[in-house]
Design a protein around this nucleic acid. Structure first.
Length: 922
RNA sequence: GGGUGCAUAGCUCAGCGGUAGAGCACUGCUUUCACACGGCAGGGGUCGCAGGUUCAAUCCCUGCUGCACCCACCA
């Protein structure tokens, strides 16, 4: 098959991807006797579309996966997508809003239908885009975090944790998102620095209204819910006030002045208002004092909730503020206090304010009942697994980040007041007690049937599962005559945090809780490839769940890659307009160029600065490779299946075979070390510098001279090296290599992606030395020609003096090559140096270029002087070093010897240069 | 406030105790036979600053400066 003149990435990509996928080349094989190699894809959000961060992470994973497939492993790259609770719900709600409706109007069931519809329509976007990137996961095994099987795993985990008392319901302050109307976890809160004010208010003393106690706040509206003012017990300024009361302005309640360690006397006035229902610190203070009568006598024990779910002021506030939005209320409270002369001062400040990472609105600490996972307990094993090295982070420094977070972890709030997600498998039974009060009992079970039977057993009466409102209504009703009395059960309406199901991904996708063969075979996985931004969200939680439910780590290695930024180091964002779209890059430069760029730029511990120019550069590399393959084909280099690399005779062939062996070994090491940058660099240098710049050039005299000695061998070698090169490049550049492999016809009908890397015997050093010498000779001659402005078209003679017999042999062997590459028309041995010639010293040999007619002798003198000067500097440095007795005495002998040798070599060359200089003296 | 990373050629980055490297950009030559998305040659760096360890420091240690990021923090 002829290789086209130019490479057409779009056509090639469209041709090979379906071929790979349809042939089953991506599939794992549980029956295989090969060692498994497993990577779990970090499931992208179904709402998502491919951005550069995706392109990076999936490219690196695909590189690893393709490499291991070609090196004898049974690979499972498990694909899938995440239902992304809040994100997806927001997208669909936004669409509803455009149609002037809302989820509330639709109702839960209808709304969920809409989300599923939307998922069916748009959920395939990201996986289609992944295909464009050349990703090769086992698509047949694709999972969605809301799949039925995964839902079973979620329920099972929930129930187990509940039974083990590692999951429980608790009423405390949560991070409340008043826009999404749900609780969120600490991790979903983003601290943003904003400009605000510190307001200092005066609270009049109860027994002397002319005196004030001054407090400061950044959230004036919360003063309506103050339950106390706290001062430090050792603060002399306030000791006399502890135990007394102040009159809370606007509300006109009396609140106590209490002593607690929390206030910092150095900060502000040293007196702190305590608003237990709206501040995490204040809540803790309240908990320490809640049993004191100054709290128990207050409304709701001093824990006064001011907000409804929208963060509008509720019935616990004075009439004039009820129904106001929190920020409106803030203005009113300030104005009203000011009118009363109770504003001491207002300072402008910058401070950090919590925002919802999805909704972007200010988060309120809000009192509510939620489900929590005892993360502290689960963290113990997750920590131990890393401490003992069962899971390793690459680069290692991320271990510390992981430790720091897990060692200080708070309970994980897992319930969300959303509709889209795994509904919590808890049911509540309602019964009216003899005292007329309703008793609520919780039944946690994997299925409704199980919950019902538990409830039935508990209540000793028939159970009816209904919705929440009906349950409450019915429970209070007395059944009509003849009607059976039921125990009413309703399901918890909340859903679980998205990350709850993601945490199970490494085993839920393999069929857990069933003990499937896949689970046995592919868990624990080999490596997790991800960005540092989800170490807490995801990595740590998978570790916790994996250790707890599988008694083993979910992955042996965690490779943390960089963030992709723009060329100026700025984070890419739509608002900044500096987004580089991966699909756009693929269209412009081809997929392989993008993949190579991302791989090459993956330096450990450094963010990636990406610019289209870099991708363009690697597009050029692809073109270079393409043309090298064309060269081979045009010169009759047909692949010979019987070719044995260790039998080649010609020096150039022995040399390039040795280089293949070396490169393959280096690559294997770089893969082991996860050094993607070095993988790319090694490939780039080998293809461009070794193969194209030298091997192809060195082989031309053989390939392009009819009947030249060693021509069949050279043709076969070139074809073989090209085939090896394609194999080595394939993990990074799958498309162009597959296309060229087909063109090379190395293995008719076989796909490159399923070929194996074959170990190559390491080449001989003699050939490498000889080619090094040849390269140096040619390069030096070219340099001299260039520097002396010898026209490129001018052929010159080469006169050789003092060449040892081995060197003479080399000159003879490479006669045609030297003539061609250095543009020399004859090579002859001489004993007497010619006059007026440029000279090159290479080891023992001196080479003269008689250029009397062409060169400017003054220029040649300058050139020789410059070179001598460089050498003399070097010699001086070495001599000084060797004159240092301490160096000679203390440095390792081989280092001293090396320096001595270098000094001698330099001195020898200098001597010859000086001779040469004399020959052209004025 | 606690922590991490980075600082090497104009740019983006390797290297890391014993002669400073690559790619891109730049300069000169070169449309010639796989490739001008090419070839050949070349210029360019007191390796952030100050100390210390060492025979020897860009590399190890300490301090400083600058940049980036993470965690905590609404008195």
């Amino acid at each position: 098959m002829a290789i086209e003149k130019t490479y057409d990435p779009a056509a090639t990509e469209a041709k090979h991807y379906p071929r790979w996928e349809q042939s089953g080349a991506f599939a794992c094989n549980p029956q295989s006797d090969k060692k498994p190699y497993t990577i779990m894809i970090p499931p992208p959000n179904v709402t998502g579309s491919l951005h550069m961060g995706h392109a990076l992470t999936f490219t690196l994973q695909d590189v690893l996966v393709r490499y291991h497939r070609m090196n004898g492993r049974d690979v499972l790259w498990q694909p899938g997508t995440d239902h992304a609770g809040i994100a997806t719900q927001m997208v669909v709600e936004r669409q509803l809003a455009e149609r002037q409706t809302s989820r509330q109007q639709l109702g839960r069931a209808k709304f969920l239908e809409k989300v599923w519809e939307w998922k069916a329509e748009s959920g395939g976007t990201i996986t289609r885009q992944l295909r464009r990137l050349g990703a090769s996961p086992d698509w047949a095994r694709e999972r969605f975090t809301m799949d039925e099987g995964l839902n079973k795993a979620v329920n099972k985990v929930f129930v187990e944790l509940y039974k083990q008392k590692l999951l429980y319901k608790d009423k405390r302050l949560v991070n409340w998102d008043p826009k999404m109307l749900t609780a969120i976890s600490d991790l979903e809160v983003e601290q943003k620095e904003v400009k605000g004010h510190m307001w200092h208010f005066r609270y009049p003393l109860a027994d002397d209204p002319t005196q004030y106690l001054c407090i400061a706040t950044t959230r004036p509206e919360t003063m309506l819910g103050d339950g106390a003012v706290a001062v430090h017990p050792d603060d002399e300024r306030y000791k006399h006030l502890v135990g007394k009361f102040v009159r809370l302005p606007l509300v006109e309640r009396l609140i106590p002045v209490i002593a607690d360690e929390y206030p910092d006397p150095e900060k502000g006035s040293g007196a702190v208002k305590i608003t237990a229902a709206h501040d995490f610190n204040d809540f803790e203070v309240w908990q320490r004092h809640r049993h004191k009568d100054y709290f128990t006598r207050q409304i709701n024990g001093g824990l006064i909730n001011l907000f409804d779910q929208h963060a509008r002021l509720n019935e616990n506030c004075p009439k004039q503020y009820q129904g106001l939005d929190r920020f409106e209320a803030r203005k009113r409270v300030i104005a009203d206090l000011d009118a009363l002369g109770l504003v001491e001062k207002i300072e402008p400040i910058t401070h950090v304010v919590p925002h919802g990472d999805r909704s972007g609105v200010v988060i309120e600490p809000w009192l509510s009942e939620q489900w929590y996972v005892n993360a502290g307990e689960l963290a113990k094993q997750a920590l131990a697994a890393v401490e003992t090295g069962r899971t390793q982070f690459v680069p290692e420094q991320w271990t510390n980040t992981y430790y720091a977070w897990l060692r200080d972890i708070e309970p994980w709030c897992v319930s969300r007041q959303l509709w889209w997600g795994h509904q919590i498998p808890a049911w509540y039974g309602l019964k009216v007690n003899v005292d007329g009060k309703i008793e609520e009992k919780t039944f946690v079970a994997e299925t409704e049937a199980e919950a019902s039977s538990l409830a039935c057993e508990h209540a000793q009466m028939p159970v009816a599962v209904v919705d929440k409102d009906t349950a409450w209504k019915k429970a209070l009703e007395t059944p009509d005559a003849g009607e059976t009395k039921h125990y009413y059960l309703y399901r918890d309406e909340d859903v679980l945090d998205t990350w709850f199901s993601s945490a199970l991904w490494p085993f839920s996708t393999l069929g857990w809780p069933q003990q499937t063969p896949e689970l046995q075979r592919y868990y624990p996985t080999d490596v997790l490839v991800t960005g540092f931004d989800i170490i807490f969200f995801w990595v740590a939680r998978m570790m916790m769940m994996g250790m707890h439910f599988m008694q083993d780590v979910p992955f042996r290695k965690v490779y943390i890659h960089a963030l992709v930024r723009d060329e100026k180091g700025q984070k890419m964002s739509k608002t900044k307009g500096n987004v580089i779209d991966p699909l756009n890059m693929i269209d412009q430069y081809g997929c392989d160029a993008l993949r190579f760029a991302l791989t090459a730029l993956s330096t450990p511990g450094r963010d990636i600065r990406l610019s289209p120019a870099r991708i363009e550069g690697y597009r050029n590399f692809a073109t270079k490779l393409w043309n090298a393959a064309r060269f081979c084909q045009m010169n009759g280099c047909a692949f010979d299946p019987a070719f044995k690399p260790d039998t080649v005779q010609l020096t150039i062939n022995r040399w390039i075979v040795g280089r293949v062996a070396q490169v393959q070994q280096q690559l294997a090491q770089h893969y082991t070390d996860h050094r993607f940058d070095l993988i790319a660099q090694t490939l780039y240098q080998f293809v461009w510098n070794d193969f194209c710049d030298w091997y192809v050039e060195l082989s031309k005299p053989v390939l392009q001279t009819e009947g030249a000695e060693g021509q069949p061998e050279t043709r076969a070698t070139a074809a073989w090296v090209l085939a090896q090169m394609l194999k080595l490049l394939h993990p990074v550049m799958p498309f162009i290599t597959e296309e060229l492999y087909e063109g090379l016809n190395a293995a008719p009908g076989k796909m490159l992606m399923l070929e194996q890397w074959q170990p190559v015997e390491s080449g001989d050093t003699a050939a490498a030395q000889e080619i090094d010498w040849l390269i140096r000779l040619i390069t030096e001659i070219r340099a001299v020609r260039n520097e002396l402005n010898v026209p490129a078209s001018a052929a010159i003679a080469l006169q050789v003096k003092d060449a040892a017999s081995a060197t003479q042999r080399r000159l003879k062997t490479h006669d045609a090559t030297i003539k061609r590459l250095a543009r020399v028309d004859r090579i002859e041995a001489i004993n007497t140096p010619p006059q007026q010639a440029a000279q090159i010293v290479l080891n023992e040999m001196t080479v003269f270029l008689p250029l009397a007619a062409i060169i400017d002798l003054a220029q040649e003198r300058a050139r020789l002087d410059k070179e001598s000067q460089k050498l003399q500097q070097e010699i001086a440095k070495l001599a000084q070093k060797l004159a240092n007795d301490d160096f000679v005495a203390k440095a390792p002998p081989e280092v001293v010897e090396e320096q001595r040798q270098r000094l001698a070599d330099n001195q020898a060359v200098l001597a010859k240069l000086q001779q040469a200089r004399k020959a052209v003296a004025e």
